[in-house]
Structures are given as structure tokens and as C-alpha cells.
Design a binder for these strands. Structure first.
Length: 756
DNA sequence: AGCACGCCGACT
DNA sequence: GTCGGCGTGCTC
């Protein structure tokens, strides 16, 4: 019987394809190995999923595997089977899922294929990385005979001993003759030269001195003991580490990782997208040195590959990164940590829409590893899992530094309290006074406003018409930058500000509302002596944000104005005042999670106020001070909020008391999109689960953002308390997709987070 | 997703 | 008379 194999090919098709394995390749065709196969009439790179003995199924002529690319399978078995499960859970094509986890192809391997006479023109588009290596010189313990070394050799050795090790190229910058000097030192046994693929990454630019693990407080020690216990049993276990801001969660993580490494196992650490800062990485490096791979979006293809390989070979056992770190090929995985587990950025919102927090639980379970989800404001999903006993709750109730007091939180009712001297409604008198006071005391303030730009809308004063995007159903935001332009925050369209209203032609356009750009200006004018800076996506992407936060820490900024980005910076120096300009913006979104997210946001910004020695003050401005999220945030009562919100959710039957799957349907033509959504809904309703009403079919309905990038959007929501039933009905509805008009795009979103 | 095959308009 | 439009159907 011939040997067959299942190959996942990089096409958006749900299933894999069978190929015949030529006897010569039988030994190297193993699950997780990449192979070159003819697919259609082109050659593509696929991944072997499984092999089996058997005959070709009814009347298909199997093609043979052309060549095996990797001498060893690139994907460990544990990771490969995890990816297959992820693919089936999210209704995502296996090829797409594999692409998330696969490293680039090494040039060396491609050359080997070329040498075999397989010169696949199409493969040129595959990511390739070269095996360029860098020579490092490392000093040995040997001691030279006095007087043997002179000049550059002596200086180079001194420098090496001071730094530990250095790339020879770096030495050459200082000593023109470094290469010869190193050669001489090597011949004397004073240094060794090692060729390596270095992590050439900013996070590793300078060595980090080892830290001394601080003593744990009682709660930390108890939490650590529970995690340690689970690690030593080597059985799957999952924890929810519920610790208030500043309670020392990170130290518990560090201990848990150390415990994991001590047992010879590896760890994955996931943090929200914007939390992966040099500060955080420094902390991990201080404990684990270079036994750490930092996976982040700034990595070049070859850096990423180098990191990937170091993890895969076990040279590095701890991988830290944003959601995609869940795919790190850590061998003998013992621990998966998710910090700030409630954060929305763990859900991928395009392509394969996986939730990295959920997948962390899954992967850890399958690997018999320990999962730890940490947060000061846990998601309702996790809280509910804890109540069901599926997560073990560990509490850190106190701030690690006892003397640190919680900030005093007050609200300003925007309906009743008028503007301060600036005349702007969102800079209320109490906020203005508080700013004056903190500036006078030489302290810093943060003003949080969830709106970029200068003015959120451009309104005609004579007819009331609001300027909207031509391809999206949203108002255009006015940005002052570059001479004043209107921009769509959804499709990134940008155009000049017209002289007259598009509707009634009256030349009476007015800017309405307050964005961060205008707030920065308003504050700078009202407080001319203050150094005011702004932090949002318009002024800072990536590294620039870190630079602004660093200035804040250094005390070079008095008032920092910004969006979400200001809520994530830790240790922001001398901040004693935090102003939330408009809490309602986040709390009144048309989403059943708006209250939960708004609350998390309030707690997070409030956490930026106050230092060890000085209590902070938080002012929350809102049109509805009585709403629960605001009230519980004021009292710093996370548990009570969770309680309240859980009761609300139970009543309306939304997660975590049910599960959802969402079909997002869009097309250029409104009717075409609506009809397609109708077809999906009809299919879902005719499924056995739909008919028995075990699964509710809600919709089709126009999406809250009815038009985006010129496409009309509809949704069909499936809801059930029974996850199996939901899955089955989703499957039935998804089966309708191929029959739908090809001009329509349909995506299935399991466990959706962003409902817009 | 590609890439073919396949039937109807403006060009050498 | 052909080159080419993108509709639909398949890829082991």
C-alpha cells in the first residue's frame, strides 16, 4: 500500500489535500515538516499534517510530494495539533492558521531545493532569511602572562572583560585592527570566537544587570505556592490571578517562570499589544538574562526567524510577546502566562480571529502546562470560569507597598457643572482648579480623552448637517495638522475642509466637540507656564510613544494629554492628578461589553494617579455619575462591579452566560449584502439547533457601523448556552457561504469581542 | 487565494 | 476576424 500524506496548503480552503509520498522521501515526510507540492499547476509550500498508509480515495489521482524543505519538522507535534484544533474551533482554513505560526524559510534550504533541480519560480515570494552569522568574541577565564599583550590587543581584551562579550564588528568600530587582535587573543586562549545568529534586537541592545528577587508579601507567597504546587504535579492547571494595581503580579509571574525553568520546562508570557515596553522587557531580562525571546512587531524577518529558531531549539526557553506569542514553538511547555488578561488586544480582529487568552488555556491544557491569567480587572469570562471551578482564583488584595494609598476619585456631573476659565465644557471648573493646584505643587497630571484629532465633528450651523465620510457611515474628524484636514478614523480617508456645507451650501461650517489635539492646545493656552504634551496615535506610533512616556517619567512634561495610550504607561513619575474628560464616550457604545470595558479603562487610568508617598486624585467627568461603572470605579470596588455586571449579563443572557458566534457580511451593494445575510440566517435557523431554539438566531441586522470603506455591513448573531449546539449551528450556517454571491464577503467570528 | 476555462465587446 | 473583459469552478 502506498504511503499517503495530508498536506495543508496556503490557500483559504478549510481542508487539507492528500499527496503520495515517494519511497525516497518516506523518512523525512513527517507531520510538521514543510514540503514542496504541485497544487493546481503551481508549486507551493505546504505543511505535512499527517501520514497514513492507504489508497487514494474514490477516483482522485494523487500527485507526489515534490520535495521536503525542512530536514527536521519545523513545527513540534504539540504545536501542530494545537493549531489544527484552533483552526477547527475558529472555522479558519488550516493553511492560514499555519501561516501564523510558521517561520520564514532559510535561504540555505531554498538553495538545496534549487540544487535538486526544483527551481520554483513561485517560491520566490516566500519569506526567506539568510543564514548570516555574526562572530562574537568572549573572554575566557585564562589570565595572560604579564607584558605579552600590547596596544589594541590589550585594550580590546580589557573592553571584552568589562562587557562580557561583544561582536567582533563592534570591536572594530573602536579598534581598526580588532580582527587581528582577536585572532591573537584567541591563539593565546584568552578569548573564544563564536559564530552565532544574534537576536539583533533593540530589546537586547545592552546587557541587563541581574536583579535580586525581592521578598514576597503574604498574598504573593501564597499565590506562588499554589502555582509551584501545580507546576510540580505536571498536570494541567489554570489560575486567575486577581491582583489590584500595584499588588506585585509581575513578581509572581517571575517566580512562576523561574519555577517552571527549574523543572526544565519552557514558558510563554503574553502581554497586551502596547504593554511590551523596554521597562517590562528589562524586568524579565534582569531575571532570566538571555534565556528570553522577545517577539514583537518591530522585528525584522530575520530577527523573527532567529528568535523563532532559538525558541524551537530550546536555546531560549521563555518567549514573551503580544497575542501571537501563543504560537511560540516552546518545547516542553510548562507555563503560559497572560498578563492583563481582560485586554481586548488578545483577540485578533482580522484574518484568523482567535482569542489568545482562550487559546492560552487550550494550549496549556493540552501540554499539561499551567496557565495563569492575571488582571486587576478580570474579564467576566474569567471570573465566571473561576466560579465554575475551571480556574483557581488567587487574590493579591493589597498594594505591594503598604504605604501606597488608593487615589481619591470624584466625579463631575457634566450636566450640572459648567466650564472653567477656558470656556470648554469638557474642561470643567473643578478639573481646571485641580490642574492649577497640581501644577503649583510641581506635580504632573494626565488628561485622558478617548478622541483623536481637533474636533470630532464638522457641523453646518445653518442646516445642522454633519460632514460624514463618503465610504463609511461615520462623522469626519477635523485635524488641525497640515493646515486643517478632515479625516475618517475608520478608512483613513483624508481631505481638505470644504468652505461650505455639502448639503445646503451655506458657508457656515463649525467645529464641534473636543479631541486630544484641541485639548492639548486649550490646556497649553490656559496654563502657559506648563509643559503640555500629547500622546495618541497621531503623534506617536510605537517607539515614539515610549519616548514621550520616558519624558514624562523624567519629569520633562507637566500635563500629558492623550487617548488609551496614556493608560498603559507604568511608573509615570510624579502624577498626582488624572482627569477623565468624558467617561461616557466609552460607556455608551452600542456593545453589551461597553460597561465592562469602560470600567476597566477607568480603573486603569485611575491607577496612574498617586505615588508611594503622595496620594493621587482622579476626576471622572460624566453626564451620568450614577452609572455603575463610574460608581464602582469611584469606590475602587472591582469585586462589587464584577458582581453587578455578572448579574446584568445573566439577565440579558449574554456572555459569559451564553456563547456567541457572529457572521459579518459585507458587500459594495447594500441589497446584495442584506440578501446574503438573510441566507446565512435562514441556514442557521434550519439547523436542528436553530429549530429547537437551543441556538438563537439574531438578525440579520445592519451592523452598528452600517457602512465601512464603501461596503455595506450586516450581521447575523448566533447565541446559545450550549457551546456544542452553537458550534453545530455555526457550522450549518457557514456551509452556506460557498453558495453566496462572490461579491459578498462573509467572515465567521467565534466568541466575538468587538461587536461593531 | 490563484489560475484556468469560457462566452460577449472594441481593436489591429 | 482576434485580444481581452471578469463570471464560475477547481485545486489531492
Amino acid at each position: 500500500m502506498p504511503l499517503l500524506c495530508e498536506v495543508a496548503v496556503p490557500v483559504p480552503l478549510a481542508r487539507a489535500f492528500s499527496y503520495e509520498v515517494p519511497p525516497a522521501l518516506a523518512a523525512s515526510v513527517r507531520p510538521g515538516a514543510r514540503v514542496l507540492v504541485e497544487f493546481g499547476r503551481k508549486k507551493v509550500l505546504g505543511v505535512v499534517l499527517a501520514t497514513s498508509e492507504g489508497d487514494a480515495p474514490e477516483g482522485v489521482r494523487l500527485k507526489p510530494i515534490t520535495a521536503v524543505v525542512d530536514p527536521e519538522p519545523v513545527l513540534p507535534g504539540e504545536l501542530l495539533s494545537f493549531l489544527r484544533e484552533l483552526s477547527s474551533y475558529y472555522f479558519a482554513p488550516i493553511g492560514e492558521v499555519l501561516r501564523l505560526a510558521l517561520p520564514a524559510v532559510e535561504r540555505e534550504d531554498v538553495r538545496a531545493l534549487e540544487a535538486q533541480g526544483e527551481l520554483p519560480g513561485t517560491l520566490s515570494r516566500v519569506k526567506q532569511v539568510g543564514g548570516r552569522k555574526i562572530a562574537y568574541a568572549r573572554p575566557t577565564d585564562a589570565v595572560e602572562e604579564p607584558g605579552v599583550l600590547r596596544g589594541q590587543a590589550a585594550s580590546a581584551l580589557a573592553l571584552l572583560r568589562a562587557n562580557g562579550e561583544m561582536p567582533i564588528a563592534r570591536l572594530e568600530e573602536k579598534f581598526g585592527n580588532a580582527r587581528a587582535a582577536v585572532k591573537k587573543l584567541a591563539s593565546l586562549g584568552l578569548v573564544v570566537v563564536e559564530e552565532r545568529e544574534p537576536p539583533r534586537d533593540a530589546f537586547f541592545a545592552r546587557p541587563e544587570p541581574k536583579d535580586e528577587p525581592p521578598a514576597l508579601n503574604e498574598a504573593q507567597a501564597a499565590a506562588e505556592a499554589r502555582i509551584e504546587g501545580a507546576l510540580s504535579e505536571a498536570k494541567p492547571a489554570a489560575f486567575l490571578l486577581f491582583g489590584v494595581t500595584g499588588s506585585g503580579k509581575t513578581e509572581v509571574y517571575l517566580r512562576a517562570i523561574a519555577g517552571c525553568l527549574a523543572r526544565g520546562r519552557g514558558a510563554i508570557v503574553m502581554v497586551p499589544e502596547i504593554a511590551l515596553t523596554p521597562q517590562l522587557v528589562s524586568r524579565f531580562r534582569a531575571r532570566f538574562g538571555d534565556d528570553l525571546a522577545v517577539l514583537h512587531s518591530g522585528l525584522s524577518e530575520s530577527d523573527r526567524h532567529a528568535m523563532w529558531k532559538r525558541v524551537r531549539t530550546g536555546a531560549v526557553r521563555v518567549a514573551i510577546g503580544a497575542r501571537s506569542a501563543i504560537f511560540a514553538p516552546v518545547t516542553n511547555l510548562g507555563l503560559v502566562l497572560v498578563d492583563e488578561e481582560h485586554d481586548g488586544s488578545f483577540k485578533q480582529e482580522e484574518g484568523v480571529r482567535y482569542h489568545a487568552r482562550d487559546m492560552a488555556l487550550l494550549r496549556a491544557h493540552r501540554a499539561s502546562a499551567v496557565a495563569v491569567l492575571g488582571s486587576a480587572t478580570p474579564s467576566l469570562e474569567s471570573v465566571q470560569l473561576a466560579r465554575q471551578g475551571k480556574l483557581v482564583e488567587l487574590r493579591l488584595p493589597d498594594r505591594a507597598h503598604r504605604e501606597a494609598t488608593l487615589p481619591e476619585v470624584t466625579t463631575v456631573d457634566l450636566r450640572r457643572i459648567g466650564p472653567g476659565p477656558t470656556g470648554n465644557k469638557l474642561v470643567s471648573l473643578p478639573l481646571h482648579r485641580a490642574l492649577e493646584k497640581s501644577l503649583a505643587a510641581g506635580e504632573q497630571a494626565i488628561l485622558f480623552l478617548n478622541r483623536r484629532g481637533f474636533a470630532p465633528s464638522v457641523v453646518c450651523e445653518s442646516c445642522g448637517h454633519v460632514a460624514t465620510c463618503l465610504s463609511c457611515s461615520v462623522a469626519l474628524t477635523f485635524h488641525r495638522a497640515r493646515g486643517g484636514r478632515m479625516r475618517c478614523h475608520y478608512c483613513d480617508w483624508e481631505g481638505p475642509m470644504p468652505a461650505a456645507c455639502a448639503e445646503c451650501k451655506a458657508p457656515s461650517l463649525a467645529l464641534e466637540g473636543l479631541g486630544t489635539e484641541r485639548l492639548e492646545e486649550t490646556i497649553a493656552e490656559a496654563f502657559p507656564a506648563a509643559r503640555v504634551a500629547r500622546l495618541d496615535r497621531d503623534v506617536a506610533d510605537g517607539a515614539k510613544a515610549e519616548a514621550i512616556l520616558a519624558k514624562m517619567r523624567a519629569g520633562e512634561i507637566d500635563v500629558l494629554v492623550g487617548t488609551q495610550m496614556v493608560t498603559k504607561g507604568h511608573d509615570l513619575g510624579n502624577v498626582t492628578l488624572v482627569g477623565v474628560l468624558n467617561a461616557d464616550a466609552a460607556l455608551s457604545l452600542p456593545d453589551f461589553r461597553a460597561s465592562e470595558r469602560g470600567f476597566q479603562l477607568l480603573v486603569q487610568v485611575a491607577g496612574r494617579a498617586g505615588r508611594r508617598d503622595r496620594p493621587g486624585r482622579v476626576i471622572i467627568q460624566t453626564r451620568n455619575p450614577a452609572q455603575p461603572a463610574v460608581q464602582f470605579a469611584m469606590r475602587h470596588d472591582v469585586s462589587a462591579f464584577l458582581e453587578h455586571e455578572l448579574a446584568d449579563r445573566a439577565e440579558v443572557g449574554y456572555p459569559p452566560f451564553s456563547r456567541l458566534s457572529l457572521f459579518r457580511v459585507d458587500a459594495l451593494d447594500e441589497d446584495v449584502a442584506r440578501r446574503a445575510a438573510g441566507v446565512i440566517a435562514a441556514h442557521a435557523k434550519t439547523s436542528p439547533e436553530g429549530q429547537s431554539r437551543v441556538v438563537e438566531v439574531l438578525g440579520p441586522a445592519a451592523a452598528p457601523l452600517a457602512r465601512l470603506r464603501g461596503r455595506y455591513r450586516f450581521r447575523v448573531l448566533l447565541r446559545s448556552k450550549d457551546r456544542r449546539a452553537l458550534r453545530a449551528a455555526t457550522q450549518v450556517a457557514a456551509a452556506a457561504i460557498p453558495e453566496i454571491d462572490r461579491r459578498v464577503r462573509v467572515v465567521v467570528d467565534m466568541d466575538p469581542v468587538a461587536m461593531l
